[in-house]
Design a protein around this nucleic acid. Structure first.
Lengths: 144, 144
DNA sequence: GGTACATCCTCAAGTAACTAGAGGATCAAG
DNA sequence: CTTGATCCTCTAGTTACTTGAGGATGTACC
């Protein structure tokens, strides 16, 4: 039975150490047992739970929804319909988001073309942005 | 010359009142003049600046980038190349995001199909999610 | 045994981009 | 002159983490 320190778990899951502790803190990941020196010790269970959380996150589920899913999974199978609903809702949202991003992509491309190779004073990016019609109400995470 | 209270600006720009005040607070929107009673008074300038901010936000620009763009626009045209770079970076990110969302869409569809119409105890949504291969490292805003 | 250096711990605060609420002043209408 | 809408400031909450301070251990090498 494996016996991993948090750093190793981070390496395997590709989560950052503070993120793992954070998930523990908010109750998404049950507090693991501790070595006599007080350090966290993880096993299979935690690894797969983290994999689940991570996949769900990447699929666009919020932590609350993940918590709901996790709760469902530990209760009678009759609540499965709820899980389906959650997945379905997210599919809807994903579709909308793709549509929004596509029109956004077009707009950006337009803007770039309109200023392409231009000499500095011909560039109208800012004016273009100022006059743009509204794209959609979809909010995006800003770029890093 | 128009003379609008914040509520009217909110109505026209479809921004919320606290958001407008917030943009002022962080210096994206210069502090407007005030009526003798202390209330904010806006004109054309502010409206179009807000329109710019809003459009840029909807195109995925972060407030920092918008600030940069705004600064650029008030400086010599020779810095236009920077604006292009900002737009280009964002286009890249948008493309990546679309790709991620598309594979995400497929995954969700898969999950739903695999559990389709099923009787409760046959549904494996959660197991499916737990075993999913990693989609991408792209993080998404959770659904509302 | 000593000395690096990595890894771990906790706790507090910071981040983006707002949103919401408390508590109070002021305005416009009837 | 009272009612209800709108405004003000200020503080704190939200989501999903990240960063940093300050300190205790663990592991490797000489």
């Amino acid at each position: 039975m494996l016996h991993l320190p948090i750093g190793e778990v981070a390496r395997r899951t590709k989560l950052k150490i503070p993120t793992i502790r954070f998930y523990e803190e908010i109750g998404l990941l049950p507090a693991p047992r501790r070595a006599p020196n007080g350090r966290r010790v993880y096993g299979e269970t935690e690894i797969s739970r983290l994999a689940f959380i991570q996949n769900a996150r990447q699929l666009g589920f919020g932590l609350d929804q993940i918590r709901a899913l996790l709760d469902l999974s530990s209760r009678p199978a009759s609540t499965c319909e709820d899980a389906r609903t959650i997945a379905q809702d997210n599919l809807q949202i994903v579709k909308l988001r793709i549509a929004a991003l596509r029109s956004l992509e077009r707009e950006l491309q337009q803007i770039l073309v309109s200023c392409e190779g231009g000499v500095a004073r011909d560039c109208r990016i800012i004016e273009a942005l100022a006059k743009l019609p509204r794209v959609s109400s979809e909010r995006l995470k800003p770029a890093e």
